[in-house]
């Protein structure tokens, strides 16, 4: 069965692009958490629980939110949507925050709200709660973006009719660096972003990263601020 990529969303370097178009960019350098909070406000999302999430969950949340709002097929069966993600650093950012809270023996106050995010697949749980996805979800941890395994596993789920659609991609956060590259995959007619193959998702990710880097370079040296559209 032919599987195709219907939407892509990429977040990195203070830029969010949806289907190849920049929807939000912040010029002033800020902490990753602040950037994501700013993007939430800019995109006018109404989900207060967002502010309690860790960086990883916030990245996946924003990207999923944008993709779901743009879906060509409006009547998807949410019980039949799977999630297949890849990640390098696991829940490192939440782990570090938790570690800091237990560092001092005399001020040992671990935060339950931080601790719940010390598992990377919690971000997928947040997506399921928000959008009502209740099918398969899997997170592969690897050193690099492993397009091969992600495409293979996702296509298996689709071809075996375990899911009808799948949110796939890469979400990673570490000190000073973060990236979410998410895509929505379905079966049937070829979509704008082409067939869902390892080569294609790898190529799309690289191309999108180049465009974001180019935009970042451009705005870093321009005196006029870039206007964001959504």
């Amino acid at each position: 069965m032919k599987t195709s990529i219907q939407h892509i969303c990429h977040i990195s370097q203070q830029t969010i692009s949806l289907d190849g178009k920049v929807v939000f960019h912040l010029e002033n350098q800020v902490e990753s958490n602040e950037f994501l909070n700013e993007s939430y406000r800019f995109l006018q999302i109404d989900y207060p629980k967002f502010f309690k999430m860790d960086i990883l969950a916030k990245l996946a949340f924003i990207a999923t939110e944008l993709i779901c709002k743009s879906l060509i097929i409006k009547d998807i069966n949410k019980d039949e949507v799977g999630i297949v993600f890849g990640n390098k650093s696991s829940s490192l950012m939440a782990d570090l925050t938790h570690q800091r809270s237990i560092q001092d023996k005399n001020a040992h106050f671990p935060s339950p709200a931080v601790f719940v995010y010390t598992l990377p697949n919690i971000m997928m749980g947040e997506m399921c709660i928000r959008h009502g996805f209740s099918n398969e979800n899997t997170l592969f941890i690897s050193e690099e973006f492993d397009a091969e395994i992600l495409a293979k596993y996702t296509n298996h789920l689709l071809n075996e009719r375990i899911v009808e659609h799948c949110m796939g991609g890469w979400v990673d956060a570490q000190p000073g660096n973060y990236e979410a590259f998410l895509y929505f995959v379905g079966t049937g007619k070829s979509a704008f972003w082409g067939e869902h193959t390892a080569e294609n998702i790898l190529g799309l990710k690289q191309k999108s990263a180049e465009e974001i880097a180019e935009n970042f370079q451009k705005t870093a040296f321009e005196s006029e601020p870039i206007s964001s559209e959504y």
Binding site: F109, P110, S111, P112
Partner: peptide, 9 residues
């Protein structure tokens, strides 16, 4: 419920 624990802390 997580907030309740956070209040305890």
């Amino acid at each position: 419920s997580i907030d309740a624990l956070e209040l305890v802390v």
